[in-house]
Amino acid sequence: MNLEALVDCLSSASCAVTQVSTGLIVGMLLFLVTSGLSLIFGVLGIINFTHGAFYMLGAYLAFTAYALSGSFLLAMVAGAAGVGLFGILFERFVMSRVYGRDILMQLLVCYAMILILDDGVKILYGGEYRMMGMPDVFALPPVEIAGGFVPGYYLFMVAVALAAGLVLWLGINRTRLGKIVRALAINPQMVGALGINTTLLYAGVFGLGSLLAGLAGALAAPIRTLTPGMGVSILIESFIVTVIGGMGSIAGAFLAALLIGFTRAFGAIGFPLFVDGLMFALMALVLVVKPSGLLGREAA
Protein backbone atom coordinates (compact mmCIF):
# COMPACT_ATOMS: atom_id res chain seq x y z
CA MET A 1 0.00 0.00 0.00
CA ASN A 2 1.24 3.43 -0.86
CA LEU A 3 -1.56 5.77 0.11
CA GLU A 4 0.74 8.74 0.26
CA ALA A 5 1.50 8.41 -3.44
CA LEU A 6 -2.19 8.09 -4.12
CA VAL A 7 -3.02 11.26 -2.18
CA ASP A 8 -0.14 13.08 -3.86
CA CYS A 9 -1.44 12.08 -7.23
CA LEU A 10 -5.01 13.10 -6.52
CA SER A 11 -3.88 16.51 -5.33
CA SER A 12 -1.93 17.22 -8.51
CA ALA A 13 -4.06 18.12 -11.51
CA SER A 14 -1.76 16.54 -14.08
CA CYS A 15 -1.59 13.21 -12.30
CA ALA A 16 -5.30 13.17 -11.64
CA VAL A 17 -6.08 13.92 -15.29
CA THR A 18 -3.74 11.21 -16.54
CA GLN A 19 -5.05 8.59 -14.14
CA VAL A 20 -8.72 9.44 -14.64
CA SER A 21 -8.20 9.21 -18.38
CA THR A 22 -6.42 5.89 -17.88
CA GLY A 23 -9.41 4.60 -15.96
CA LEU A 24 -11.70 5.68 -18.79
CA ILE A 25 -9.48 4.17 -21.47
CA VAL A 26 -9.26 0.82 -19.70
CA GLY A 27 -12.90 0.91 -18.64
CA MET A 28 -14.66 2.06 -21.77
CA LEU A 29 -13.37 -0.58 -24.16
CA LEU A 30 -14.23 -3.15 -21.53
CA PHE A 31 -17.69 -1.60 -21.27
CA LEU A 32 -18.21 -1.91 -25.00
CA VAL A 33 -17.46 -5.63 -24.94
CA THR A 34 -19.42 -6.20 -21.76
CA SER A 35 -22.52 -4.29 -22.89
CA GLY A 36 -22.92 -6.76 -25.75
CA LEU A 37 -22.47 -9.73 -23.41
CA SER A 38 -24.94 -8.26 -20.97
CA LEU A 39 -27.49 -7.37 -23.63
CA ILE A 40 -27.53 -10.91 -24.94
CA PHE A 41 -27.86 -12.34 -21.46
CA GLY A 42 -30.56 -9.87 -20.47
CA VAL A 43 -32.79 -10.57 -23.44
CA LEU A 44 -32.00 -14.13 -24.47
CA GLY A 45 -30.98 -15.46 -21.08
CA ILE A 46 -27.89 -17.14 -22.47
CA ILE A 47 -24.25 -16.49 -21.68
CA ASN A 48 -22.39 -15.95 -24.91
CA PHE A 49 -19.00 -17.41 -24.13
CA THR A 50 -17.95 -16.79 -27.73
CA HIS A 51 -18.01 -13.06 -27.05
CA GLY A 52 -14.23 -12.91 -26.64
CA ALA A 53 -13.78 -14.74 -29.93
CA PHE A 54 -16.14 -12.23 -31.58
CA TYR A 55 -13.95 -9.43 -30.27
CA MET A 56 -10.98 -11.16 -31.87
CA LEU A 57 -12.89 -11.57 -35.12
CA GLY A 58 -13.74 -7.86 -35.12
CA ALA A 59 -10.09 -6.96 -34.69
CA TYR A 60 -8.96 -9.22 -37.53
CA LEU A 61 -11.74 -8.04 -39.85
CA ALA A 62 -10.76 -4.44 -39.16
CA PHE A 63 -7.12 -5.35 -39.75
CA THR A 64 -7.94 -6.82 -43.15
CA ALA A 65 -10.26 -4.00 -44.17
CA TYR A 66 -7.65 -1.42 -43.17
CA ALA A 67 -4.91 -3.24 -45.04
CA LEU A 68 -7.09 -3.37 -48.18
CA SER A 69 -8.64 0.07 -48.09
CA GLY A 70 -6.42 2.17 -45.85
CA SER A 71 -9.55 3.71 -44.36
CA PHE A 72 -10.00 3.44 -40.63
CA LEU A 73 -13.69 4.29 -40.90
CA LEU A 74 -14.19 1.39 -43.27
CA ALA A 75 -12.18 -0.85 -40.94
CA MET A 76 -14.47 0.01 -38.04
CA VAL A 77 -17.57 -0.62 -40.10
CA ALA A 78 -16.17 -3.90 -41.38
CA GLY A 79 -15.26 -5.08 -37.88
CA ALA A 80 -18.60 -4.13 -36.35
CA ALA A 81 -20.93 -5.08 -39.17
CA GLY A 82 -19.00 -8.21 -40.09
CA VAL A 83 -19.17 -9.59 -36.59
CA GLY A 84 -22.80 -8.49 -36.23
CA LEU A 85 -23.65 -10.50 -39.32
CA PHE A 86 -21.63 -13.43 -38.10
CA GLY A 87 -23.48 -13.24 -34.79
CA ILE A 88 -26.84 -13.40 -36.53
CA LEU A 89 -25.77 -16.46 -38.51
CA PHE A 90 -24.37 -18.09 -35.39
CA GLU A 91 -27.60 -17.42 -33.50
CA ARG A 92 -29.81 -18.71 -36.32
CA PHE A 93 -27.92 -21.85 -37.22
CA VAL A 94 -26.31 -22.87 -33.96
CA MET A 95 -27.32 -21.08 -30.80
CA SER A 96 -31.08 -21.13 -31.41
CA ARG A 97 -30.97 -24.90 -31.47
CA VAL A 98 -29.89 -25.08 -27.84
CA TYR A 99 -32.31 -22.51 -26.42
CA GLY A 100 -34.15 -23.75 -23.40
CA ARG A 101 -31.68 -26.56 -22.95
CA ASP A 102 -29.14 -27.04 -20.29
CA ILE A 103 -26.74 -24.15 -19.80
CA LEU A 104 -24.00 -26.74 -20.28
CA MET A 105 -25.17 -27.35 -23.84
CA GLN A 106 -24.84 -23.64 -24.57
CA LEU A 107 -21.43 -23.63 -22.97
CA LEU A 108 -20.35 -26.54 -25.11
CA VAL A 109 -21.58 -24.97 -28.33
CA CYS A 110 -19.72 -21.76 -27.47
CA TYR A 111 -16.59 -23.70 -26.61
CA ALA A 112 -16.75 -25.42 -29.98
CA MET A 113 -17.14 -22.07 -31.71
CA ILE A 114 -14.17 -20.60 -29.84
CA LEU A 115 -12.01 -23.53 -30.94
CA ILE A 116 -13.13 -23.16 -34.53
CA LEU A 117 -12.66 -19.38 -34.67
CA ASP A 118 -9.25 -19.45 -32.99
CA ASP A 119 -8.03 -22.11 -35.36
CA GLY A 120 -9.64 -20.41 -38.34
CA VAL A 121 -7.84 -17.17 -37.58
CA LYS A 122 -4.57 -19.05 -37.18
CA ILE A 123 -5.04 -20.76 -40.54
CA LEU A 124 -5.90 -17.50 -42.32
CA TYR A 125 -3.45 -15.11 -40.66
CA GLY A 126 -0.80 -17.38 -39.17
CA GLY A 127 0.40 -17.31 -35.59
CA GLU A 128 2.44 -14.10 -36.02
CA TYR A 129 1.76 -10.99 -34.00
CA ARG A 130 -0.27 -8.50 -36.00
CA MET A 131 -0.82 -4.83 -35.45
CA MET A 132 -3.14 -2.75 -37.58
CA GLY A 133 -1.16 0.45 -37.18
CA MET A 134 -2.33 3.86 -36.06
CA PRO A 135 -4.31 5.74 -38.74
CA ASP A 136 -2.52 8.94 -39.82
CA VAL A 137 -5.38 11.10 -38.50
CA PHE A 138 -4.45 10.10 -34.98
CA ALA A 139 -0.67 10.22 -35.36
CA LEU A 140 -0.51 13.39 -33.28
CA PRO A 141 1.20 14.17 -30.01
CA PRO A 142 -0.97 13.55 -26.95
CA VAL A 143 -3.39 16.31 -26.04
CA GLU A 144 -2.48 18.28 -22.92
CA ILE A 145 -5.27 18.77 -20.40
CA ALA A 146 -4.36 20.62 -17.20
CA GLY A 147 -0.82 19.35 -17.33
CA GLY A 148 -1.86 15.72 -17.93
CA PHE A 149 -1.53 14.05 -21.31
CA VAL A 150 -4.17 12.07 -23.18
CA PRO A 151 -3.50 10.58 -26.64
CA GLY A 152 -5.91 11.73 -29.33
CA TYR A 153 -6.81 8.21 -30.34
CA TYR A 154 -7.89 7.34 -26.83
CA LEU A 155 -10.17 10.40 -26.74
CA PHE A 156 -11.76 9.12 -29.93
CA MET A 157 -12.01 5.57 -28.59
CA VAL A 158 -13.66 6.62 -25.35
CA ALA A 159 -16.04 8.88 -27.27
CA VAL A 160 -17.10 6.08 -29.62
CA ALA A 161 -17.62 3.68 -26.72
CA LEU A 162 -19.64 6.24 -24.79
CA ALA A 163 -21.71 7.08 -27.86
CA ALA A 164 -22.37 3.41 -28.55
CA GLY A 165 -23.39 2.87 -24.93
CA LEU A 166 -25.66 5.91 -24.99
CA VAL A 167 -27.33 4.89 -28.24
CA LEU A 168 -27.86 1.42 -26.84
CA TRP A 169 -29.33 2.76 -23.61
CA LEU A 170 -31.61 5.21 -25.42
CA GLY A 171 -32.60 2.55 -27.89
CA ILE A 172 -33.65 0.17 -25.15
CA ASN A 173 -35.27 2.66 -22.83
CA ARG A 174 -36.72 5.31 -25.14
CA THR A 175 -37.92 3.61 -28.31
CA ARG A 176 -40.80 1.37 -29.21
CA LEU A 177 -38.45 -1.34 -30.40
CA GLY A 178 -36.61 -1.07 -27.11
CA LYS A 179 -39.86 -1.58 -25.26
CA ILE A 180 -40.55 -4.71 -27.28
CA VAL A 181 -37.06 -6.00 -26.56
CA ARG A 182 -37.53 -5.36 -22.86
CA ALA A 183 -40.86 -7.16 -23.00
CA LEU A 184 -39.17 -10.00 -24.84
CA ALA A 185 -36.77 -10.41 -21.95
CA ILE A 186 -39.62 -10.78 -19.48
CA ASN A 187 -42.32 -12.62 -21.37
CA PRO A 188 -41.43 -13.89 -24.83
CA GLN A 189 -44.69 -15.87 -25.23
CA MET A 190 -46.72 -12.74 -24.76
CA VAL A 191 -44.62 -10.81 -27.25
CA GLY A 192 -45.06 -13.64 -29.72
CA ALA A 193 -48.76 -13.72 -29.11
CA LEU A 194 -48.96 -10.04 -30.04
CA GLY A 195 -47.89 -10.96 -33.55
CA ILE A 196 -44.30 -9.84 -33.21
CA ASN A 197 -41.70 -12.01 -34.86
CA THR A 198 -39.67 -13.06 -31.83
CA THR A 199 -37.31 -15.22 -33.87
CA LEU A 200 -36.26 -12.17 -35.83
CA LEU A 201 -35.91 -10.15 -32.64
CA TYR A 202 -33.75 -12.77 -30.96
CA ALA A 203 -31.47 -12.90 -33.98
CA GLY A 204 -31.38 -9.11 -34.09
CA VAL A 205 -30.48 -8.74 -30.43
CA PHE A 206 -27.79 -11.40 -30.69
CA GLY A 207 -26.44 -9.68 -33.78
CA LEU A 208 -26.42 -6.31 -32.01
CA GLY A 209 -24.57 -7.75 -29.03
CA SER A 210 -22.03 -9.35 -31.35
CA LEU A 211 -21.69 -6.09 -33.26
CA LEU A 212 -20.64 -4.35 -30.06
CA ALA A 213 -17.92 -6.97 -29.51
CA GLY A 214 -16.81 -6.51 -33.11
CA LEU A 215 -16.71 -2.74 -32.73
CA ALA A 216 -14.61 -3.09 -29.59
CA GLY A 217 -12.25 -5.40 -31.48
CA ALA A 218 -11.97 -2.89 -34.34
CA LEU A 219 -11.25 -0.05 -31.90
CA ALA A 220 -8.59 -2.20 -30.21
CA ALA A 221 -6.88 -3.22 -33.46
CA PRO A 222 -4.62 -0.13 -33.77
CA ILE A 223 -3.32 -0.41 -30.20
CA ARG A 224 -3.47 -4.05 -29.18
CA THR A 225 -1.65 -7.04 -30.58
CA LEU A 226 -3.68 -9.39 -32.73
CA THR A 227 -3.04 -13.08 -32.08
CA PRO A 228 -5.20 -16.18 -32.21
CA GLY A 229 -6.68 -16.63 -28.75
CA MET A 230 -6.59 -12.91 -27.95
CA GLY A 231 -10.25 -13.10 -26.95
CA VAL A 232 -9.64 -15.20 -23.86
CA SER A 233 -8.39 -12.50 -21.50
CA ILE A 234 -11.03 -10.00 -22.61
CA LEU A 235 -13.73 -12.65 -22.10
CA ILE A 236 -12.66 -13.26 -18.51
CA GLU A 237 -12.45 -9.56 -17.75
CA SER A 238 -15.80 -8.74 -19.28
CA PHE A 239 -17.23 -11.71 -17.45
CA ILE A 240 -16.08 -10.25 -14.15
CA VAL A 241 -17.56 -6.89 -15.13
CA THR A 242 -20.87 -8.49 -16.07
CA VAL A 243 -21.12 -10.33 -12.79
CA ILE A 244 -20.20 -7.28 -10.71
CA GLY A 245 -22.48 -4.94 -12.62
CA GLY A 246 -25.38 -7.36 -12.73
CA MET A 247 -26.17 -9.84 -15.48
CA GLY A 248 -28.29 -8.19 -18.13
CA SER A 249 -27.90 -4.62 -16.94
CA ILE A 250 -26.28 -2.19 -19.39
CA ALA A 251 -26.02 0.54 -16.76
CA GLY A 252 -24.51 -2.00 -14.38
CA ALA A 253 -21.96 -2.96 -16.99
CA PHE A 254 -21.05 0.71 -17.39
CA LEU A 255 -20.66 1.20 -13.67
CA ALA A 256 -18.64 -1.96 -13.15
CA ALA A 257 -16.40 -1.29 -16.14
CA LEU A 258 -15.63 2.16 -14.74
CA LEU A 259 -15.00 0.61 -11.35
CA ILE A 260 -12.52 -1.86 -12.82
CA GLY A 261 -10.90 0.85 -14.93
CA PHE A 262 -10.38 3.18 -11.99
CA THR A 263 -9.26 0.35 -9.73
CA ARG A 264 -6.57 -0.49 -12.25
CA ALA A 265 -5.59 3.13 -12.88
CA PHE A 266 -5.34 4.25 -9.26
CA GLY A 267 -4.40 0.82 -8.00
CA ALA A 268 -1.25 1.04 -10.10
CA ILE A 269 -0.27 4.00 -7.92
CA GLY A 270 -1.71 3.11 -4.54
CA PHE A 271 -1.51 -0.69 -4.26
CA PRO A 272 0.31 -1.98 -7.33
CA LEU A 273 0.60 -5.68 -6.50
CA PHE A 274 -2.94 -6.31 -5.51
CA VAL A 275 -5.04 -5.20 -8.47
CA ASP A 276 -5.82 -8.62 -9.93
CA GLY A 277 -6.57 -10.18 -6.58
CA LEU A 278 -8.84 -7.24 -5.89
CA MET A 279 -10.87 -7.92 -9.04
CA PHE A 280 -11.52 -11.55 -8.10
CA ALA A 281 -12.22 -10.62 -4.50
CA LEU A 282 -14.70 -7.97 -5.65
CA MET A 283 -16.44 -10.51 -7.87
CA ALA A 284 -16.67 -13.08 -5.09
CA LEU A 285 -17.90 -10.45 -2.66
CA VAL A 286 -20.62 -9.24 -5.00
CA LEU A 287 -21.72 -12.84 -5.61
CA VAL A 288 -21.98 -13.55 -1.92
CA VAL A 289 -23.65 -10.31 -0.87
CA LYS A 290 -25.83 -9.57 -3.88
CA PRO A 291 -25.62 -12.33 -6.47
CA SER A 292 -27.61 -10.34 -9.01
CA GLY A 293 -24.86 -7.72 -9.13
CA LEU A 294 -24.77 -3.99 -8.40
CA LEU A 295 -27.59 -3.00 -10.74
CA GLY A 296 -29.02 -6.36 -11.76
CA ARG A 297 -32.62 -7.39 -11.29
CA GLU A 298 -33.13 -9.68 -8.33
CA ALA A 299 -33.26 -13.27 -9.46
CA ALA A 300 -36.73 -14.71 -9.41
Binding site: T18, Q19, S21, T22, I25, V26, L29, Y154, A220, I223, R224, T225, M230, S233, I234, R264, A265, G267, A268, I269, P272
Partner: peptide, 11 residues
Protein backbone atom coordinates in the same frame (compact mmCIF):
# COMPACT_ATOMS: atom_id res chain seq x y z
CA UNK B 1 -0.67 -11.67 -21.83
CA UNK B 2 -2.37 -8.46 -20.70
CA UNK B 3 -3.87 -6.74 -23.73
CA UNK B 4 -3.60 -3.23 -22.32
CA UNK B 5 -0.67 -1.46 -20.66
CA UNK B 6 -2.10 2.03 -20.27
CA UNK B 7 -1.96 2.06 -16.47
CA UNK B 8 1.67 0.90 -16.47
CA UNK B 9 2.59 3.51 -19.08
CA UNK B 10 0.92 6.35 -17.23
CA UNK B 11 2.59 5.18 -14.04
Amino acid sequence: FAPDYTESITK
